[in-house]
Design a protein around this nucleic acid. Structure first.
Length: 292
DNA sequence: GCCCAGGAGTGTG
DNA sequence: CACACTCATGGG
């Protein structure tokens, strides 16, 4: 251990199965994980910089600064308590999904910080993932606190609230800047805490009262930020996929009702499988699913 | 210059 | 309800 200012490193191993780091951390659920040249993934969780690297069945974790919190942060983020095998067996009843799931066994839904997720997906409206990552990084660089060399924490709600509107508008966020500013002004930590007790439907409705939060953003925040696995976010990729795979078209409401009926309480996992497949298919032309 | 991107807000039929 | 239009910005 080196003690140099706040730099106290900590290493430990975890066994989380199934888990594919690239499928889980590189598919647009969280925006601050970076693939390193050695195959590891590095990103901030709360005030700690975490490195994850797989060797065989073991995930090596390197936390900086270290502490007993690091293990809890990683386990919570990767939702280690989820029985992903059971979820997959349930969803694989769908003959369209079954062959694709077998290729995405290690894709897990992550649990991200509520406030960070809300802000990130407000920024995500009508942007692509590289740009979303860039905008989120800009917020951290300009308003977050340094936690490691070159890496800042995501700014808290209280911090963003104190940022002048003109400073947010100089970040290159376009029309999204005023949403972030206004949402920080309307919310406080207690309200976010209260949202954790709401049902998915209640939470969704509450989130959609916020400016810049429509159905899709509310569903992403519900799924990733609040762990509502029945949420089924529908973006342009999902619209295309649902049309192609299931012949389903129409309004958000209609597609959402279809998803609830077809995928039920684990619709969020079905969404990630379909979304991930649709994006990789656009890249390599291979579809893992069979059409309905 | 074109088009698109993990859309939302507003107004209209 | 559904639909059309506008809203800023960056990258292919």
């Amino acid at each position: 251990m080196t003690i140099q200012g706040c730099l106290i490193r900590m290493k430990f191993d975890l066994r989380i199965s199934p888990l594919d780091l690239s499928q889980t951390l590189g598919c647009g659920q969280a925006f601050r994980w970076r693939l390193q040249s050695d195959g590891s993934w590095v990103g901030p969780l709360a005030d700690q910089l975490i490195k994850l690297k797989r060797t065989g069945h073991v995930i090596h974790v390197d936390a900086n600064p270290g502490g007993s919190r690091a293990k809890r942060l990683v386990l919570d983020h990767l939702r280690a308590q989820d029985d992903v095998g059971e979820i997959q067996r349930t969803l694989a009843i769908d003959p369209v999904l079954a062959p694709g799931i077998s290729q995405m066994r290690g894709l897990r839904i992550v649990k991200t910080n509520e406030w960070e997720t809300l802000v990130s997906f407000i920024l995500a409206t009508y942007a692509n993932i590289p740009r979303i990552m860039k905008m989120v990084e800009t917020l951290a660089t300009r308003f977050g606190d340094p936690i490691a060399e070159g890496v800042n924490s995501f700014p808290t709600l209280d911090r963003i609230r104190r940022v002048p509107r003109s400073d947010l508008e100089s970040c290159g966020f376009g029309y999204r800047a005023k949403y972030i500013h206004e949402v920080s002004r309307r919310l406080d930590e207690d309200q976010i805490g209260g949202m954790k007790d709401l049902s998915y439907i209640e939470l969704r409705k509450k989130l959609m009262e916020l400016p810049g939060v429509g159905e899709k953003v509310a569903d992403c925040v519900s799924l990733f930020g609040f762990g509502k696995l029945e949420s089924f976010p529908i973006d342009v990729w999902m619209e295309r996929a649902l049309a192609r795979l299931y012949g389903r078209r129409g309004s958000y409401l209609r597609l959402r009702e279809f998803a609830q009926e077809r995928f039920g309480q684990y619709a969020g996992y079905a969404q990630e499988y379909i979304y991930h497949n649709e994006r990789t298919r656009a890249h390599d032309g291979v579809c893992a699913f069979t059409r309905n």
